[in-house]
């Protein structure tokens, strides 16, 4: 007697403004991906499978168990696709830094559409465009009209666009957290809605260099990573190299630290921090010369602070669209 056919939970993967690294992260599950692929029915995954938008449109609402969406939202097409997936899915997981916080594409919020187009299609050294021709949402050609999605001035996180159930942090999320999330979803063992599926500790709590972190850090001088040779038995902050570890959520496996680079905050903040960039700015500024603050001369202070050349890009590297101000002001 054959077993009754139990239908497997349907899963979708989608990408928005992203680099493709999150797709790679799914493939990086290595043989574990077979276990996942065995337990679920992948109904949509543009990078790997040939399903179309109309296939999703034809599905019943909420019939996809979970959609994993990576990338930030910057075009009308992305906005439309995530709205469609939201309607068709029981759960939506914002997958990776860009979906979660805006990520590197979110740094575009320090510019706007005109600035980005000018840079990419006119000023870039590899581009010759004397007539200043830019992509248009609609172009008339003899054969008819050609269209492109609308390119917005502002990059948004996924949860600024649709309702999000869970977040998988990281650039890209590491395999163990992805697997935990998938297993949790399949077994129905999930924390409350809105949770970030990673530990709620700061990176310093799990960092292998934490044992070298002095009780009291006083930053005398600020150094950029390329200016010094990092001592592998020294905490970056104690060396004067800005590390976002104190404000960043742990769970990445300290990938950058182990590769000799300070943390740049791709995991986002711990639960109670609202604006990660501003938080780091506050703590770094507090630590500068803390032991000699009363004697510090105006020149000394200015000299150290001048070493932070691009505070916006540094402190908000992964989190600009999710910050309180979200973007550069449009006048």
């Amino acid at each position: 007697m054959s077993k009754p056919k139990v239908s497997k939970p349907k899963v979708a993967f989608y990408w928005c403004a992203s680099c493709g690294g999150c797709e790679e992260a799914v493939v990086d599950l290595a043989e574990d991906i077979l276990t996942v692929a065995d337990a679920v029915d992948i109904v949509f995954w543009p990078v790997a499978l040939d399903f179309k938008k109309k296939d999703i449109e034809a599905m019943q609402d909420a019939s996809i168990a979970v959609s994993f969406i990576n990338g930030a939202i910057r075009t009308s097409e992305q906005e439309e696709m995530v709205n469609l997936l939201r309607k068709k899915s029981g759960l939506v997981v914002a997958f990776g830094s860009c979906a979660h916080l805006g990520g590197i594409p979110g740094l575009a919020n320090f510019s706007d559409k005109a600035g980005i187009f000018e840079r990419a299609y006119k000023l870039a050294p590899t581009v010759t465009n004397p007539d200043g021709i830019y992509p248009q949402t609609e172009t008339q050609v003899p054969e008819g009209s050609l269209t492109l999605p609308v390119f917005y001035d502002t990059v948004k996180t996924v949860d600024q666009t649709i309702d999000v159930d869970y977040y998988l942090p990281g650039c890209a999320p590491p395999p163990d957290l992805i697997l935990n999330a998938v297993t949790g979803i399949l077994e129905g063992k999930l924390p409350g809605k809105g949770a970030v599926l990673a530990p709620d500790k700061s990176l310093c709590d799990t960092c292998p260099l934490a044992e070298y972190k002095p009780e009291k850090i006083s930053i005398k001088d600020i150094k950029r990573p390329h200016e010094v040779v990092h001592d592998p038995e020294q905490c970056f902050l104690a060396e004067g190299i800005i590390c976002l570890g104190p404000a960043t959520r742990s769970g990445c496996g300290e990938r950058c630290i182990k590769a000799g680079m300070p943390c740049r905050g791709c995991f986002g903040p711990t639960r109670d921090v609202k604006d990660m960039g501003t938080k780091v700015l506050t703590s770094i500024a507090s630590l500068i010369g803390i032991e000699t603050e009363e004697e510090m001369s105006e020149e000394e202070l200015q000299k150290v602070l001048a070493k932070i050349v691009d505070p916006g890009g540094l402190f908000f590297m992964y989190s600009l669209p999710s910050s309180v101000l979200r973007r550069r002001r449009i006048k």
């Binding site: 700015l281 506050t282 500024a285 009363e294 202070l301 602070l305 101000l325 449009i330």
Partner: peptide, 23 residues
């Protein structure tokens, strides 16, 4: 004792950052 020294450093760095936000 020295709260205001910290405030001073934070506000200097924040002003620089705000300029990048167009403020």
């Amino acid at each position: 004792k020295n709260g205001n020294y910290k405030t001073d450093r934070r506000i200097r760095l924040l002003r620089k950052t705000l300029a990048q936000f167009g403020i």
